[in-house]
Design a protein around this nucleic acid. Structure first.
Length: 514
RNA sequence: GGCCCCUUCGACUAGCGGUCAGGUCACCACCCUUUCAAGGUGGCGGCACGGGUUCGAAUCCCGUAGGGGUCACCA
């Protein structure tokens, strides 16, 4: 039998990591068995419906590479795939359930139900619909409905006995039927509830495995009763663990960042997100921690899903992301993905494609996300970067070395890594000074910061001309007295003074050397 | 509160009667080193508790505790 799975999100807001998580397992099982993975939109709540949500969720799956075989956009043999477009289907099944005595029309108002619950609470009795509408004669139900009286349709549930089903991961689960209280199937607005819609659609769409979060366990007996009332075979139920906030409550927007779009904006890679999510509750038989979706599919086995309750840990997600950024993805790939962020920041990329590659190569071990990488890259793409506080200190202390290195560098014959490296080492040795005394001021001059890639790498990547220019700029800056404000302004001021001096006019000195 | 689910290092997990209880993240130390990272090596740290079953239990059973979910005309 063909394996058919589905993801059935509600269009109520930002694409949620929980949707990816459950979607991943559904996708993996379907692909593993050459089956189909269906995307169905559960848009039966008109209150919480959000216009753009469907599109964003669909785009998220595309971004992740978890393409559904059937969806509202793609279509397929089981459409429509929006529940709001299937109202007649649900209505037909409800009619049948009523006709066969499995359901009835109930006319209690919201106030009436509230009062009922209040009374139950007062008496300390279990909460839930007490079945009072069952006693209304069928003819009266139909008459009132025909007269346009608002009502819902409820499922008739047994008063005693138990309803049992098998969860693939947890074994047999039994519920006393008295716990199940004639749930609403069709709302008074004519829309189905989740319970009705999910059962009807899963059956009609041929879903064989219902893989969903464990929060649904308690409503599964309702579904089982419905399957029976409709005379349908049960699918396999697989309740996967619920993702948690750090305090172990159900992952929520209030306590965690649950938006996939947000992670995407932060420069999280889809590969990393999927890989990390996969390790939450699932493991490779050989213990590998890093694997692609395809590798997961190849090794996939529902029985390897654990039942623990994993905390969604941003730190570990970042770790996975960093791993992909610096090691698992080819350099060209990473470069292609950061480039748009460079452009966004107004960086002049130039026309040498290797330059960007070199920059990314040297920066990626230092970044955990694409955004972090881009944020660090500024000085590679402008000659007008600022000097931070640490850099200014280094410049102040390193003037003589900067002048010397500027001279040495300009005379350097073999301008490659070894050439520059040899030159600097010889200089340090000749001067008999600690390396840092030379390297740190150089780094400051080259980048405006004190934490950056190796000086030799920087010089080689920037090229002789720009390296020399930057050292020269730093020296001018030092001459200007290392003001705290904008270096560009300071440098212009310095130049003005220089010209004035040439013309022999006395000028006031801005500030003495620190 | 009723019902249901869950329980191995701080976090994610491997384990499915016999293991020195393994790995990863985080944390700490050391190494490498011109800074920051990355990388390397090592360390800290765990079977919730109590009963059984068994020659032998993290593994099986029962109970307790703790955590979570759910009790809507939301999904």
């Amino acid at each position: 039998m063909e394996v058919v799975t589905r993801i059935a999100p509600s269009p109520t807001g930002d694409p949620h990591v929980g949707t990816v998580y459950v979607g991943l397992f559904n996708y993996a099982l379907a692909r593993k068995h050459g089956g189909r993975f269906i995307f169905r939109l559960e848009d039966t709540d008109r209150q919480r419906y959000q216009e753009l949500s469907e599109q964003r969720i669909l785009e998220m799956f595309t971004w992740l590479g978890l393409e559904p075989d059937e969806s509202p956009v793609k279509g397929g043999p089981n459409g429509p795939y929006r529940q709001s477009e299937r109202l007649d289907v649900y209505r037909a099944h409800v009619e049948r359930l009523i006709a066969e005595g499995h359901a009835y029309r109930a006319f209690e108002t919201a106030e009436e139900l509230d009062a009922m619950r209040a009374e139950q609470r007062r008496l300390g009795r279990p909460l839930g619909y007490d079945g009072r509408g069952r006693t209304v004669p069928r003819e009266e139900q139909e008459r009132r409905a025909a007269a346009g009286e608002p009502h819902v349709v409820r499922l008739v549930t047994p008063d005693d006995g138990t309803t049992t089903f098998t969860d693939r991961l947890r074994g047999q689960i039994a519920f006393a039927n008295e716990e199940i209280r004639d749930p609403v199937l069709l709302k008074s607005d004519g829309y189905p509830t989740y319970h009705l819609a999910v059962v009807v659609d899963d059956h009609l769409m041929g879903v064989t495995h219902v893989i969903r979060a464990e929060e649904w366990i308690t409503s599964t007996p309702i579904h089982v009763l419905l399957y029976r009332a409709l005379g349908w075979h049960l699918p396999e139920f697989v309740h996967v663990p619920l993702l948690r906030n750090p305090d172990r409550t159900k992952l929520s927007k209030r306590k965690s960042d649950t938006s996939v779009d947000s992670y995407r904006r932060q420069g999280i890679l889809p590969e990393a997100l999927l890989n990390y999510l996969a390790t939450l509750g699932w493991s490779m038989p050989d213990g590998r921690e890093f694997f692609s979706v395809d590798e997961m599919i190849a090794a996939f086995d529902l029985d390897r899903i654990s039942t623990g309750e994993p905390i969604f840990d941003l730190k570990k997600l970042k770790f996975f992301n960093a791993k992909y950024l610096r090691e698992l993805l080819p350099l060209e790939d990473v470069a292609a993905r950061v480039k748009p962020l460079f452009v966004e920041r107004g960086f002049e990329l130039g026309d040498d494609p290797d330059y960007v590659l070199d920059v990314v190569d040297v920066l990626r071990p230092r970044a955990e996300t694409l955004v972090e990488l881009a944020d660090q890259a500024g000085y590679f793409f402008t000659e007008e970067f600022p000097y931070d506080e640490g850099a200014r200190k280094q410049l102040a202390a390193g003037q003589t070395h900067l002048q010397a290195v500027e001279r040495e560098l300009s005379m350097l014959e073999f301008f490659d890594y070894d050439g520059v490296d040899d030159m600097l080492r010889e200089y340090v040795q000749d001067q008999a000074v600690p390396m840092g005394k030379v390297m740190m001021p150089l780094r400051a001059a080259l980048t405006g910061t004190t934490s950056a890639p190796g000086v030799v790498d920087l010089i080689v990547i920037l090229g002789k001309r720009r390296a020399l220019a930057r050292i020269g700029r730093a020296l001018t800056f030092i001459d200007a007295g290392l003001p705290d404000d904008d270096p560009q302004k300071a440098l212009e001021e310095a130049r003005r003074q220089e010209e004035a001096a040439k013309r022999g006019k006395p000028v006031a000195k801005a500030k003495g050397h620190g």
